[in-house]
Design a protein around this nucleic acid. Structure first.
Lengths: 115, 115
DNA sequence: AGGTTAATTAACCATATGGGTAAATAATGT
DNA sequence: ACATTATTTACCCATATGGTTAATTAACCT
C-alpha cells in the first residue's frame, strides 16, 4: 500500500496469479482473454490484476482493435535485482550459516575480552 | 494474502519499514527496541512488522534475558533470486528494449508472409 | 517484594485487496 | 443498424493490513 517504487513492485509480485501472468508474458504479448484463460476466475478479476501490474509498470499495454495486448516490462524487476545485491553479498559471505554466525559471535566476544 | 512461500516473502518485502529493518540486520543481530528506534512508530507496530518477517522466515528470533534479538535469514531471498532468473534472461536477451521488440515483431510478420 | 525495562497481546479503527455479478464501452462483422 | 466479442466500470462483500492505545507478561535490579 505504500506508494514507493519498490513497495508497489513487491506487492504486485505478492500474488501467484500475477506472477503466473508475468511468466506467460515472457514468451511475448498476450491479450487479456489469453491471459485469463488458464485461471478459474472472472474477467474483471483479471482486469484488476493487470491494473496492479500496470501501476507497478511490470506490464505495458497497447491497443489493437478490440484487443488490449499486454507485454512484460522488466525495469522494476531489475530494480529488485539491484536491491537484492546487498543480501546476495550477505549470503555469499556465509553470514546466513549458523556455524559462521557462531564464529562471528565468538570473535566479537573475544574482542570484548581484549578491550 | 495467499500463503505460498514466494507470495508471503514478496508481501513481507512490500513495505519500506520492513525492508529497512532487514537492511539494518545485515550488520548483525538487533533487539526489538534497537530496530524500533529509527522509526516514528509505536512498539506494537514494530512487533507486528517483525511477526510478518518471521512468518516469511526472513528473520529468526532468539531469547536473551528480556531481549528477543532478531537476525536476518536469507533463504527466502535466495528463492526470489532464483525466481528472478527467467526474467534476468529476458532482459539480458534485450527483449525489454523497444527496438529489439520491434525487430522480433517484424521477424514474426515476415515468417507469416513466407508461410 | 516492588519498580523498571523489554516486548507482546488485545481491542479497535480506517483503508486496501481480491473476489463476484451486472451493466457499460468499444470495435468487428454482417 | 444489430448482434457478437473483448474489455472495463460500478457496486458489493469478506477479509487482510498497518496503525493506534491500554493492558499484560517476562526478566532484571535493588
Amino acid at each position: 500500500m505504500p506508494n514507493d517504487h519498490l513497495s508497489s513492485t513487491f506487492s504486485a509480485l505478492a500474488d501467484p496469479t500475477r506472477r503466473a501472468i508475468l511468466a506467460r508474458l515472457v514468451t511475448g504479448e498476450k491479450t487479456v482473454s489469453d491471459l485469463a484463460r488458464p485461471f478459474d476466475m472472472t474477467m474483471p478479476a483479471i482486469t484488476k490484476h493487470l491494473k496492479v501490474l500496470e501501476r507497478a509498470k511490470l506490464i505495458e499495454r497497447s491497443r489493437e482493435g478490440q484487443y488490449r495486448p499486454c507485454r512484460l516490462h522488466s525495469e522494476p524487476l531489475k530494480e529488485i535485482d539491484q536491491w537484492m545485491e546487498v543480501y546476495r553479498k550477505y549470503w555469499k559471505a556465509g553470514f546466513d550459516r549458523l556455524d559462521n554466525y557462531l564464529k562471528a559471535i565468538q570473535a566479537k566476544e573475544k574482542n570484548h575480552d581484549d578491550t
